[in-house]
């Protein structure tokens, strides 16, 4: 489906960029006039996905995190968060609530669970050694897009 509007950015996998990433996505989506709750849901889901890239994909290294956001018909927002890091061997296991490979860093193991409950759809594709792509979809309910 052809997007009505689209943006793309990349940044380094430094933890200081986690706030930048969720703010940038929420600033782009603001044009749909979402509710505070919807915006907060999107910020939280993006924050989880980006943190996964920082903590797991590029563990002990710095790499690039790519974000692409599309606004499509019916005010559906599609957010793609991609890295070229280590990848996930077992995606189903990684998505289980409370599963974490970093308990010593107090990772609660809730990243994917939060993404799933804060958006309408989460899709994860990963190849070990090559990287991971997370696609989040959420419909913004309030207004008709007229941009």
């Amino acid at each position: 489906m052809k997007p009505l509007n689209e943006m793309e950015l990349w940044f380094e996998s430094r933890s200081s960029n986690e706030g930048f990433a969720r703010s940038a996505v929420s600033a782009f989506i603001a044009q749909l006039d979402p509710t505070i709750g919807e915006l907060n849901d999107i910020k939280t889901a993006v924050s989880e996905a980006v943190t996964n890239c920082v903590v797991h994909a590029y563990r002990n290294t710095i790499g690039r995190i790519y974000i692409n956001v599309k606004i499509t018909e019916g005010a559906v927002v599609i957010i793609k968060i991609r890295d070229k890091g280590i990848g996930i061997e077992n995606v189903a296991q990684a998505m289980e609530p409370l599963f974490t490979t970093a308990p010593s860093e107090e990772r609660a193991g809730l990243g994917f669970a939060v993404m799933q409950s804060f958006t309408d759809n989460v899709n994860v594709r990963s190849s070990p050694g090559k990287g991971t792509t997370v696609i989040l979809k959420k419909r913004i309910s309030r207004r008709v897009y007229n941009g």
Binding site: R22, K43, E48, E106, A108
Partner: peptide
């Protein structure tokens, strides 16, 4: 704002 890192902070 808080994401699941805040949960880890509380649990810890």
């Amino acid at each position: 704002f808080m994401d699941s890192s805040g949960i880890g902070l509380i649990m810890g």
